[in-house]
């Protein structure tokens, strides 16, 4: 298969996916002069770049996580705004993954390449929905690229959690969530499911949730839990506590007597993954596209060729070959294909 001609000006380098005429990298894994960042998750947005082009929300998130001086210069680009660098037209379009997440749309030499970053198609009250951008080459993530992955409707999963809290009023429900995106989406879903009691937050979740709130999202009453204080176990009986996934079964969680451990992630679709984490209430909620969404999205972009990154590339490349769409795995290192 002859690679698409766009691969002459856009190709992987050890630092990440490189746009040669523009001299910039997309989501580079090590410090570079010029970068375009798709979204604020730590494996995509790293500190130490000379210049960062991203949505205003992504830049704000980077500053909260890494400090104001985490890059030499920042250039904000809202969805739909275009910039030109070295003859390359750069645009950002909503990816539906988390607040501020963007697909990067590059036009050069008569070709359009869209780099999806991480994305999903199902509804999320805490971010703009994914926008289909017709293109010649679509660079897709592949976190859940196996036909076994079909996520549940997120609202129904949140209702299961609320129902479990009602049924077991003597126990604390401990919900593991990633701190950026999943946490705020779950809070919004849980509120929509009719749960209005205060939600207790692990300290690591507080700053980003406050940022979301400052952007106008309504979360109801939230109460941070002091990380160091020896809190009374009984304080939390019957309530909902949210924490980072690693804290579910770590020293921090010992303050809760016999909690119901829940974890909201696309990985919970597979029993072994839930067992591995000792999760009692697995919730299948993901911020990544599942198998049908991946395939539908690729079809909708009308791309002549698809480049597949981080995840189960082999399955998606195989599926696309069955569909007659030229596809290849793009070897990019440094991405977390387990996060969700």
């Amino acid at each position: 298969m002859r690679p698409h001609r766009a691969s002459r000006w856009l190709y992987p380098r050890p630092e990440g996916l490189y746009c040669e005429p523009g001299g910039f990298f997309i989501d580079p894994v090590r410090p570079v002069d010029k970068s375009v960042i798709t979204h604020g998750h730590a494996d995509h947005a790293r500190r130490g770049h000379g210049a960062v082009l991203a949505t205003p929300e992504t830049i704000a998130i980077m500053k909260i996580r890494y400090g104001e001086a985490c890059a030499g210069a920042f250039q904000e680009a809202a969805y739909g705004e275009a910039t030109a660098v070295g003859g390359v037209r750069i645009g950002l379009a909503p990816a539906g993954h988390i607040l501020g997440s963007a697909q990067v749309v590059l036009d050069y030499d008569g070709s359009r390449v869209v780099i999806s970053g991480d994305y999903k198609r199902s509804a999320d009250p805490t971010c703009s929905p994914f926008e289909v951008v017709p293109c010649d080459v679509f660079v897709s993530e592949a976190t859940f690229a196996l036909p076994v992955f079909r996520h549940e409707p997120a609202g129904r999963e949140a209702s299961r959690l609320v129902e479990s809290i009602r049924q077991q009023p003597a126990r604390t429900h401990l919900l593991g969530v990633y701190g950026l995106g999943k946490c705020q989406r779950m809070i919004a879903l849980i509120r929509a499911a009719g749960y209005d009691a205060p939600i207790h937050l692990h300290g690591a979740l507080v700053a980003l949730t406050e940022f979301y709130a400052s952007q106008g999202f309504e979360f109801g009453a939230l109460q941070p839990i002091a990380t160091d204080a020896r809190t009374n176990r009984r304080d939390f009986a019957g309530s909902l506590v949210m924490c980072p996934p690693a804290a579910i079964a770590d020293r921090w969680s010992r303050r809760f007597e016999d909690p119901v451990t829940a974890f909201a992630s696309g990985w919970m679709r597979v029993r072994g993954r839930a067992l591995q984490r000792g999760v009692e209430l697995p919730l299948i909620v993901s911020d990544h596209a599942d198998w049908p969404e991946l395939i539908a999205t690729i079809e909708q972009t009308g791309a002549e060729e698809v480049w597949v990154t981080h995840g189960r590339e082999d399955a998606l490349v195989h599926q696309l070959s069955l569909m007659g769409i030229p596809a290849r795995a793009l070897t990019l290192v440094g991405f977390d294909d387990e996060g969700d």
């Binding site: 036909p147 082999d314 195989h318």
Partner: peptide, 12 residues
Amino acid sequence: DPELYRLSRDYV
């Protein structure tokens, strides 16, 4: 597809 079945079975 048998290849997708195999990849899925291996993963699950």
